Simulated scan of single mutants.
Amino acid sequence: MAAAVSAARLCRLAGRNLSSLSVRHRQAVSLPARRCYICASTGNNLQFRLDERTAHSSLDLFKKDTGVIYRMLGMDPSHVPDNPERFREWAVVFGDGKISSGRHYWEVTVKKSQEFRVGVAEAQMSREDCVGTNISSWVFGYAQRKWFAMTRNKMVPVTLVGKPERVGILVDYEAGLLMLVDVEKPRIIHTLRAQFKAPLCPAFGLWDGELLTHSGLEEPEGLK
């Protein structure tokens, strides 16, 4: 897979909801100052749940909001509470934890999915964008039986044999690093380098199957 892909092909890989029919320039939006994350951690044991207020109408949260299932039909968007925090065009949901310093680790179990993204995004990221397509989000994704790292709408192949059911995500805020972790070894598979300047949230995109988060974990020993 090339480092950058055409806009037409990326429309699918970016995971846009099937009901969306056009691509237009995205502007950042100003979200309410009253955003209310239940967990803000500066240690290594970030614990979070998925924030229903941000979830696209095709995503159904379960297991006390630690898991999410993609439903193709989903809910009628008009029946979902209207608020500026919700993703309405992309099948994305944020975690309710906020990261502004430190080193943090969590794991994700993915079942029956052939297209998903896991990573971080700025808490104030525009809800008009999909994670990985702007300068405010950094993700690792799986699509077309291949792994990739993505930010700024550019995709870089990640060499990984097979598709593990469970992977780890390690964030080092000060160092500007997002790492994909093989939980079996454990070892770092790939590292995305960034300059984090604003509070981050765990971020997830899902276009089939289900995803379960495991937070509040210690970082595995031996990771650099």
Rank of each mutant, 00 (worst) to 15 (best):
Q144C: 11
V23E: 10
E210P: 02
S41C: 15
E52V: 14
A175H: 09
R35S: 09
G15S: 03
L46T: 08
Q27M: 10
G176W: 04
W147G: 04
V108M: 09
M150R: 03
E128N: 12
V158N: 05
A28Q: 11
P220A: 04
R71Y: 06
M75T: 11
V181Q: 03
G43T: 10
I99Q: 01
K111S: 15
I135V: 13
L223H: 07
R16E: 07
V181M: 07
A175N: 13
Y105K: 06
Y173G: 09
S41Y: 01
I169Y: 02
G67H: 04
S6Y: 01
S101Q: 13
R16F: 08
A149W: 01
E174D: 14
V171H: 03
N17K: 02
E115Y: 03
G95T: 04
K154W: 04
V110Y: 02
W106Y: 11
A2H: 11
K154H: 11
L212K: 01
E115P: 09
H25V: 15
T109Q: 09
L59A: 03
V131Q: 05
N153C: 12
D51K: 02
R9E: 13
C201E: 07
L200K: 04
R12F: 08
L21Q: 07
G168T: 08
A7W: 00
M72W: 00
A198N: 14
T109C: 12
W138Q: 08
R26G: 15
N44E: 15
N17E: 05
E115I: 08
N45S: 14
A149Y: 01
A40L: 07
S6P: 12
R152G: 07
A3S: 13
H56Y: 01
S57F: 06
A3M: 11
V158Q: 04
A149C: 12
L223W: 04
C39L: 05
A198Q: 14
C36W: 00
F87G: 02
T54I: 05
D76I: 08
E221T: 08
A143G: 10
Q144F: 05
H190C: 13
L170F: 07
G15L: 01
G43L: 09
T66R: 13
E52M: 11
Q27I: 07
S101N: 11
A203N: 06
F140H: 06
I38A: 12
F62P: 08
C36D: 10
L59D: 01
C201N: 11
R193I: 12
M125C: 09
L177Q: 15
S41Q: 08
S136I: 02
A3N: 14
S126E: 02
S113R: 05
P32I: 01
M75Y: 03
S100C: 13
C130D: 10
I38T: 10
K224L: 14
E219Y: 00
H79C: 15
W147R: 03
L212E: 07
K64N: 15
L59Y: 00
N153Q: 07
D60L: 05
A203S: 14
Y70H: 13
V183K: 03
E184P: 01
R53T: 14
R26W: 08
P84H: 00
S6V: 05
V167A: 05
A7N: 09
L177T: 13
G119T: 08
V139I: 15
C39V: 07
S58E: 02
E219F: 00
V120H: 02
K64I: 14
V156K: 11
G119H: 02
W207C: 13
H56V: 11
Y105V: 10
S126A: 11
A14F: 01
P32E: 03
D65V: 07
E122N: 12
M72P: 09
I38W: 00
